[in-house]
Structures are given as C-alpha cells and as structure tokens.
Amino acid sequence: MLDDRARMEAAKKEKVEQILAEFQLQEEDLKKVMRRMQKEMDRGLRLETHEEASVKMLPTYVRSTPEGSEVGDFLSLDLGGTNFRVMLVKVGEGEEGQWSVKTKHQMYSIPEDAMTGTAEMLFDYISECISDFLDKHQMKHKKLPLGFTFSFPVRHEDIDKGILLNWTKGFKASGAEGNNVVGLLRDAIKRRGDFEMDVVAMVNDTVATMISCYYEDHQCEVGMIVGTGCNACYMEEMQNVELVEGDEGRMCVNTEWGAFGDSGELDEFLLEYDRLVDESSANPGQQLYEKLIGGKYMGELVRLVLLRLVDENLLFHGEASEQLRTRGAFETRFVSQVESDTGDRKQIYNILSTLGLRPSTTDCDIVRRACESVSTRAAHMCSAGLAGVINRMRESRSEDVMRITVGVDGSVYKLHPSFKERFHASVRRLTPSCEITFIESEEGSGRGAALVSAVACKKACMLGQ
C-alpha cells in the first residue's frame, strides 16, 4: 500500500517536472537572447534605426563620474514606483581627507489618484512632500541643488532636461508624456511658492545606482535594477552614441532593455503563462523582457503555473481556492519566502493557508518547484541581457580580458534567497573573457542622484555659470 502511494507521488512529481521543464533555458538559448539583445542595442544607438529599435539606448548626458572633490548639501528625489523618497545628502571631506556622503531620508507613498490623475496632481503632491521634508529638517530658507531620480523612459536633451516617452509600472498621470519632466517639477514648486529649489540633474535609477557604486569602486561602469521592473545602464564610447554629437570619451546610456521583445525577438521563448500575464497587464505587448524578470510579474506567473497544475490534477487534489483564482493573489514576496523555507515546509504551508488552501507535504514541495522554475528562468533571462552589455563593452574597448564592476539594486536581487547566485553564475558562463565584480548599492537611487548633481554643480562652477 505504502509502495503504491510512494509510486503515485513519484509519478505525480515526474509529471510536474515535465510541465515545469518549459521554463528551462539551455545555454544556447541564452546565447541567442544575448546576441539578439546586442543587435537591438546597436539599432538603438544608431541614428537611422533608433526610432524602430525596441531597446532605445537613451543617452543620459552623464559623462563624468564623481571624483571626490564636490562638497555641499544636496536634496535628492526618487520616483520610480508607488513609494517616493526625499533625501538630504551631505557631501563633504571625511576623516583623513576621505570623501564622505551622509544621508537623511523619508519615504512617502503615492496615492492612487496622483498616479493615475493628471501630471499637475502628481507633481503638486511631490512638491508637497518636499515642503514637508524641508519643514522637518528646518531647511526651507536654503535654496538647495536638487537631483531627481526618475525611473521611467526619458529622452534627455541635457542633464536637466528630459522628455517622458511613456509611463510604465502602473503610472498613468495624463499630460506628462511628451513633456519635460524637470519643467513639470519646477512648475509645481513655483505653484507652491513656499520654498526654492535648483533642479540641476535628472537621472534614471540605473544611472543613480551606477554612480553610487562608483563611489565604492571606481571600476563600476554598469548599473542595473532588478526590482519591480528590470533595466540597466553602462558607459558607452561616445563615438557609438549617434544621437549625441561628439566622439570623445564616454557617456552613460540608459538601455531601457525592459522593452526588448516588443518587436518579436522573444516570441519563441514566451510561454502561455507569459501571454496571460501580458494580456492582463496595463501595457499589453510592451516591456516583454521586463515581464519575464521583474517583481511586478513574478508572483503572478507562479500563480498561473499553480492553476495549470491544479487543472492537471497534480496539486491540491485538483481544487483551487477562490483566493488562488484571484489575479495578483500570489505576491512576489511569497516566491522569495517559499524558496527561503528551511525544509520543514512550515513557511510554505503558512503562505498557502493564507490563500485558503490546506496543502499536503507533496503540495508544498511542488509549489516550491514552481517558484524555483519561474525565478530561475528570470535570473537566466536577466543574465543574457547583462552578458550582452558586458561583452559589447569588452569588444568596443578591444580588451582581451576586461575587469568590470556592476552596481545592482532592486528588491528581487536583494531579497530573493537564490536569485543573485543563479544570476551571477549564468552571467559568468556567458562572459568567459571578463572578470566581473557585483556590488549592491546602498540607498543607491538617492545618493547617486545627489552625486550626479554634485558633478553638475562642479561643472557649472568651472564653466562660470
């Protein structure tokens, strides 16, 4: 009897593995994704193909990295998701002549009506938060230079001027797309009239992360975010950046690689679950690469896999709870928690219980395998993109072996128990001629924006502006 049951459990697990095998990517698959990513990057950089390229390769006008001589107080704003952060950054000489960066910050959550109302409502709310922060720190009387981390696709015309191309991540505030974001912020500050600010720089969160990590390690020339969304930036040779005049030196390019796949480059790798996630998203047909990796989508992918296993009578005796059938019910943090389970399955059992399920031991094991399959594919897909960037940098610099540091931020990278190990191992397999160091950014977005502002202020002083 026991043997029969054991055989049935083994057969069930084997069927589960057959279904989950769809998520496995072979090294040849990853090399294919990497080569296609490089081709799209090239198209994004070139003037004649930029418009139709899915990977936009947006110039950021960040050319210099901090040298350690900029000092002063800077205000930093960070808008990239449902939370908005205001930070005071003091850049100065530390002990023994070292450079020191001290920060104080406060988080504000953005109400739904500000995210989806008008641009005026959104930026009025942001300036209200700045006003509140300055009151708390008794700094209303000071006109501070301000660095703005704005983590949406922007076409820069200068370091302090950028046109919002399109909202992502659930934002829909009308009247912002096609307009200068810094102008919208300046107008809102003017409307309030109770404080003055000098907006000197606007950067993407990947750029802010790279600059913040450069402060720790001067070989950091790539910034990457794996959180709600997924994106990367890197220092490109100016001669390859056709959208900006000049051939000397390097400029940081914001790849906006989340949109890779929007022209069909990933079609052969998309599964039924991916198509369902895409169809029910706020932007169907867009940001397809990001939807395979980002935390906004990972939990939902797992939920759809679990429903398939229920329908195949391989999980929960073929019956799903009402909660499990509800879109968004299986949160991405559950994926991390399930994979963090120590082996007694308590954590998995508790999560499934909150979803109205009474799982068996085998159910718990199957749910864990589903989570591992989805998150491992995410790590491997992400590795193909980064390997594409790094191999490109090595080739354009004609280096036999390139040493490089990548600064990384984002909740999936930082909080998932195995993502970074799987990701690092896969990147290294795909970049055999590179020695890569990964560092995690601390308060990256805010500190990085302030350091970019410090560079901009120093330049302005040198130019006598």
Rank of each mutant, 00 (worst) to 15 (best):
2 L>N: 03
2 L>W: 10
3 D>T: 13
7 R>K: 14
11 A>Y: 14
17 E>D: 08
22 E>D: 14
27 E>L: 07
29 D>H: 02
34 M>L: 05
34 M>E: 03
53 A>R: 14
62 V>W: 00
69 S>K: 03
79 L>E: 03
85 R>A: 11
87 M>H: 09
94 G>C: 06
96 E>K: 13
97 G>D: 04
101 V>D: 00
101 V>W: 08
102 K>Q: 12
108 Y>T: 04
111 P>D: 03
114 A>E: 02
117 G>K: 08
118 T>E: 14
141 H>W: 14
152 F>N: 11
155 R>I: 15
158 D>Q: 13
165 L>F: 08
167 W>I: 13
168 T>Y: 15
168 T>M: 07
172 K>S: 05
173 A>R: 03
181 V>D: 11
184 L>A: 12
185 L>T: 04
189 I>G: 04
191 R>T: 04
196 E>G: 05
212 S>D: 01
221 E>H: 05
227 G>V: 01
236 E>T: 05
237 E>I: 04
241 V>T: 01
241 V>H: 01
246 G>N: 00
250 R>G: 05
252 C>A: 04
255 T>K: 01
261 G>Y: 10
262 D>W: 08
262 D>N: 13
269 F>I: 02
270 L>G: 04
271 L>I: 02
276 L>V: 11
276 L>K: 09
279 E>I: 14
281 S>C: 11
283 N>E: 09
284 P>R: 14
287 Q>H: 12
287 Q>C: 15
296 K>W: 14
299 G>A: 07
301 L>K: 11
306 L>A: 01
307 L>R: 05
317 H>N: 11
319 E>H: 11
322 E>A: 11
325 R>V: 11
335 V>G: 02
340 S>A: 02
341 D>Y: 02
342 T>C: 04
345 R>W: 03
347 Q>V: 10
349 Y>G: 02
363 D>E: 04
370 A>E: 00
373 S>L: 07
377 R>F: 01
378 A>P: 01
381 M>Y: 14
385 G>T: 05
390 I>V: 06
392 R>P: 04
396 S>K: 15
396 S>V: 13
411 S>V: 08
413 Y>H: 07
420 K>S: 09
425 A>S: 15
437 T>A: 08
446 G>K: 10
449 A>P: 08
450 A>L: 14
451 L>S: 13
461 C>D: 10
462 M>I: 07
